[in-house]
Each structure stands twice: as C-alpha cells, then as structure tokens.
Design a protein around this nucleic acid. Structure first.
Lengths: 200, 200
DNA sequence: ACTGTATGTTACTGACCGGTAACGCGGTCT
DNA sequence: AGACCGCGTTACCGGTCAGTAACATACAGT
C-alpha cells in the first residue's frame, strides 16, 4: 500500500549532514542539549554515529553548528521583514509583533532555544557562548535600529524594554503555566503606543 | 598555625543533610544541575554518597529539596520586606528594587536558579516542575498584591510587566554581555513612576 | 555494659555516553 | 579497470554516572 499519489514516490532525502542538523535541532530543543546523546541524534537522522562524527568533529562542534543555524534562521526572520517592507520600519515592527504572537501561542513552546542553550552550556570557553552572545546582541540592535528609523524617541531605552519583555516571556513560559507570557503581545503593543512618535 | 582567635576553634559543623544542601546549591547553580554528579556534591559537603542517599532517596529528590530551599529563601525575601515595612507597600516595593539591584550587579551572576532549573528539567512529570511553577506564580502574585495595596491602577498589568522585565534581565544576563540587563533597575523605576498613583 | 541510630568507607553494578577502529559497500571520475 | 570518496555497520574503549551492599565506627540513651 505504497502511496504513489501526491508525492514523487522516490524523493531523494537530504544529505546526511542536513538530516543530522534537523534531528539535532528537534531533539536538542525538545529535551535539552545535555539530555540528548549523539547516538540518538544519529538514529533520528536515519544514519549512524560514524557519519555524524565525520561531519562534526565532536558533540560540541555539532552544538555550535546547531546554534549557528538557529542564529541564521533568526536573522532571516528580520531580513525577510526588511525585504517585505523596505524602508517601512513601522510595518517591520508590526510584522515582528505578529511573529512574536505566533511563537508564543504555538503550543508546546519551550522558550528560546538559544537562551536555553546559554543556560545549559555554562563553560565560559564553550564555542557556543560567542554565537549566543552575538546573536542576542544583534537582535537587540535590530530593535534599536527599527525604533530609531521609525522615529521613536529614546530608541535604545525602548528597545531594551521590548527586548527584556520578550526574553522574559520566553523564559517564563517554561516556568509558570498561564503566566504573564501570554499577555506579552498586548503589553508590547501598548508600550509602543505609549512611546509612539507624535504624528505632527 | 591554627587560628584560635576570632572563632570558637571547634565550631560544630552543621549536620550532613544541611551540608549536602549547601554544597548542592553552590554546584547546581554554578555548573548546572545535569552537569553535577552526586559524588562531587557529597565530596563538597565533606561527606559521602551513602549519607547523601540516606537523606535523599535519589538525585531527583535532592533536586526537589534544592528547589524547595531556593523557593523558601525567595519567599523569605518578601516576608522580610513585609516585616520591615508593615502596611507600607511602597516601602516594600522600594526594598525589592534595591534587592533586584543588588542581585543584578553582583558579579558572577548566573541568572535565576529556579528558572535555570526549569530549562534543564524538561520532563513534564519531574517533581521539580510543580515547585518551580508555584514559586514563580507566587512571586508574580506578590507583585500584584503590592501594586494593588500601593494604589497603582491596573496592578495586574503592571505586575506582569515588572515580572517579565525582571525575568528577562536574569535570563539575558547569561546570554549577552553588557546587555540590557544592567539597565533594568532604571527601567523599573521609571515604569513605576509612570504608573504611580496620583497623590491627590 | 547494651542497643539503636547516624555516619563514614570501600567496593561494586549496570547503564550510558562520547569517541574511535576497521571493514565493507556503492557510486563517480578518470 | 582502478582509484577515490562518502556512507553504513559493527564492535569496541575508557570514562562517568546513579544507585546499592556490606561492613566499620562513633555516639546516644538506657
């Protein structure tokens, strides 16, 4: 009873390296980085440990690659918004708010994978730490840029506030059920409304 | 060269159970729960694994006890403030702000141990999860109560905002160096000033 | 002195984990 | 045809970890 309808029947699967990254991503996010062994990642990727180690020299390297991919896709969200609404900072901000809303209402939310990695990887010399730091800094700077571009006054301060509210929402959704996280989008909207540049 | 000055020379050490909790607390906080083995905790407590297992049936039970103690001490902060300034919600809020300031400027900050535990312990049936959830919910409710008592309008909304900002600061201090976390106290103060009840 | 209780000590088990060695297979390029 | 390369398979190593058994010690109350 092999279905030949609706799909090309013999889709060539993505190469092992990509399958491994996909599997690592799901498992790391769901169960935590330290809780997942390399073998289970290889299994989930329909390959084996040797192939995994040929592509990634160690588990730490795999973790770094995992975080690099998360960062790349996170940046891509902003880039896409900039492409969709070129020069329109307000529209980009509105798009970001809708993105935040979608992320936080998707059930099974386990917070920000990057922040969670920062909690799990405490060694100060871990290759992941730089990636994490850069990513979060970039994200905050994006907010500053958009607020400035949109004409908000004190864009730095506003960006800090928005950044921390969002980070707080994503961590607290893992701590308290029915917590304030579900209300953060409303809070963000009213915060922006309060600080909106006067149209004059 | 044994110092006999300045201390009673033969201070009876606290009982093993207490020493274990102290050691677990330091190690769990510094290195993460999953990164610390029970044996190293026993060593740090100047005792051994057997004694540890006589007091705590499993590592998970020890984790639960660890979190219970964190929660107890966290609550104690609020209770102490209520005792110092009975009936004066504004003074209690000011005291809490100073406490927040102290926590965030203490070097070597690794964020909120309770929130970090929530990130590390993803199993939904882990005994720690209920403790975490209750603690964070209690904390948010305390804020609501103080804001209401102090006469702020919309105390729920304000408490949500303050709560998320603080949680965001404590997680982001682990993610980005020189991030917005260091400025959160100023943000909180101006937020309270904005929403302060009109003195009329 | 006797007994119970809390603690220390050593040694062990079974499981798991990160990482590696060696070999085999099937393509592809020349 | 032959060489190479990416991938799969199996088996293994050394280490660590949670948890336990058995025995020794020290001190309490009686």
């Amino acid at each position: 009873m092999v279905s030949t309808i609706n799909q090309p029947a013999e889709v060539t699967p993505p190469p092992p390296r990509q399958r491994i990254l996909i599997a690592a991503r799901q498992l790391f996010y769901r169960h935590g980085i330290r809780a997942v062994g390399v073998e289970s990642i290889a299994d989930a990727a329909a390959t084996n440990k040797m192939t995994l180690y040929r592509h990634f020299g160690s588990k730490d390297e795999l973790i770094a690659a995992y975080l690099n991919e998360l960062a790349k896709e996170g940046d891509e969200v902003w880039d896409a918004l900039a492409r969709e609404h070129p020069g329109d900072a307000n529209a980009q901000l509105e798009g970001w708010l809708r993105y935040v809303e979608k992320i936080l209402t998707d059930c099974g939310e386990r917070g920000c994978a990057v922040a969670n990695a920062a909690v799990e990887l405490r060694e100060i010399d871990h290759p992941a730490r730089q990636i994490i730091d850069d990513y979060k800094t970039r994200k905050r700077d994006r907010l500053v840029g958009l607020f400035r571009q949109a004409g908000y006054e004190e864009p730095d301060q506003l960006a800090d506030e928005v950044f921390l509210l969002f980070e707080g929402a994503r961590i607290s959704i893992q701590c308290c059920s029915n917590g304030p996280a579900v209300r953060v989008v409303r809070m963000l909207r009213s915060l922006l409304a309060e600080h909106a540049p006067k149209p004059r």
